[in-house]
């Protein structure tokens, strides 16, 4: 009887905790959508800002964030998958690889502003890329790399050893085995890493603040060495640095909503790729 009561209390408590998390997230989304939708208009989405963002649209920032995310994934995915393949398929499992893994996990916990400073030092100043899409994407790539590596390693480990054995026993080399009978099956898991990366890369402000983002640049970039505006940084400017902060409040909500939709859109695109791989290779 008493154990039954305790059981019920725990059940009730855990339920309340879960619901409150859902409610908080739901309220944030609801608030952004409610205030953001009125700000959305064709002009807002397709035009450049005027009067430091108090009027006009956010098109350059949308394009900027899109380029940064794509650049980040293009850099981080091959690097991350490559290191994951090395770590889980080739490297001898010993103390050294343990230390590398620990370093990767630790890297995932480094504050993003530190990545920003690192990017400023290495890419912007030392390698002389200047404040540019290239420097920003590289910095963001460093930041999401641990996530991509960890997700990719998980995905590789999930492929049964039997597939590798069968392939090796047919006389395939190790690389042939990995290329034809491990990577295709682990693709969907690796893409999950990419989705998590997209979310972080699109939303972070600190790393791009020091390496790429322009305060006010109402035109589109011409090359990867140009600066761009970016949605999170634009949002930060509107919310805290703008002389008419109250007046641009609807624009802040609109920007936040667009950022969410952009991440959602990119993620959905990637999820479709993942579904494709899942369907193709199931075991």
């Amino acid at each position: 009887m008493k154990t039954n009561l305790i059981e019920h209390l725990w059940y009730f408590f855990l339920r309340v905790v879960t619901y409150s998390v859902v409610i908080v997230v739901g309220y944030i989304l609801f608030d952004i959508i409610r205030h953001g939708i009125p700000a959305l208009s064709w002009e807002f989405l397709t035009e450049a800002p005027r009067r430091s963002g108090a009027e006009g649209g956010i098109f350059p920032a949308i394009v900027g964030t899109f380029y940064l995310v794509v650049g980040t994934i293009v850099i981080a995915l091959p690097l991350g998958i490559g290191s994951a393949i090395y770590l889980s398929e080739y490297a001898t499992q010993n103390r050294f690889t343990e230390i590398i893994r620990l370093a990767i996990v630790t890297l995932a916990g480094v504050p993003s502003i530190v990545f920003g400073l690192f990017g400023l030092g290495l890419f912007v100043l030392f390698l002389k890329f200047g404040a540019s899409i290239l420097a920003g994407s590289l910095t963001l790539a460093c930041m999401v790399l641990p996530t991509v590596i960890v997700a990719s390693e998980e995905a590789l480990r999930a492929v049964p050893r039997a597939f590798r054995d069968a392939s090796l026993a047919l006389g395939a080399t190790k690389w042939e085995t990995i290329r034809t009978n491990v990577l295709p099956y682990s693709m969907s898991g690796m893409i999950t890493g990419a989705i998590l990366g997209i979310g972080r890369a699109a939303g972070e402000t600190a790393p791009i603040l020091l390496t790429v983002a322009a305060f006010f640049l109402p035109k589109l970039p011409k090359s990867i060495f140009d600066q761009v505006m970016a949605l999170p940084y634009h949002l930060y400017i509107l919310a805290t640095q703008h002389p008419e902060a109250d007046k641009v409040l609807p624009l802040q909500y609109g920007t936040a909503l667009v950022l969410l939709l952009l991440v959602l859109g990119l993620s959905i695109g990637v999820i479709f790729i993942r579904i494709h791989f899942r369907k193709k290779y199931r075991w």
């Binding site: 049964p160 039997a162 069968a166 026993a169 099956y185 290779y281």
Partner: peptide, 26 residues
């Protein structure tokens, strides 16, 4: 060596591909 000395495992382990592609893999 492994081409000359084939192996069949305890648990059948076809690749998650078509029948044709399984045989044609080697």
């Amino acid at each position: 060596l492994r081409r000359k000395v084939g192996m069949v495992f305890q648990k059948s382990n076809p690749f998650p591909k078509s029948i044709f592609d399984n045989i044609a893999y080697g």
